[in-house]
Amino acid sequence: MTEETRRAARAGRRPPEVRCGAGALRSPSAQGAPSVHAADGLRIETSRVRADTAVVAVAGEIDLRTAGPLRDLLVETHGRLPGARPRRLVADFAGVPFCDAAGLGALVAARNQISAAGGEIALAGVRPAQLRLLKITGLHRLFAIHRDVETALSCHDSPTRSG
Results as ranks from 00 to 15, higher is better:
L42V: 05
R6A: 06
T77M: 04
R26Q: 11
G83C: 06
P82A: 14
E61H: 07
L134I: 07
R7L: 14
P86F: 10
L131W: 06
P15Q: 09
P69Q: 12
I121C: 03
R87S: 15
R85Q: 15
R132H: 15
T66K: 08
P97Y: 01
H37E: 10
P69D: 12
L104Y: 03
T53W: 02
D63F: 09
A116L: 13
G118Y: 13
R85W: 07
P97H: 00
R127M: 07
R19S: 12
L133F: 13
N112A: 14
F98I: 04
A9Y: 11
R48Q: 10
A33L: 11
A33D: 12
R26D: 11
H140Y: 06
A122I: 01
R7K: 12
K135H: 15
A54W: 02
A106T: 05
D92P: 06
G12P: 04
V96L: 03
L131P: 00
P97S: 01
L139A: 01
T137F: 03
D63C: 06
A22R: 13
E17N: 10
D157Y: 05
A109W: 12
E76C: 12
E76H: 14
P128C: 09
L142S: 02
E61N: 09
L133E: 07
Q113N: 12
R85T: 14
A57N: 02
L81W: 02
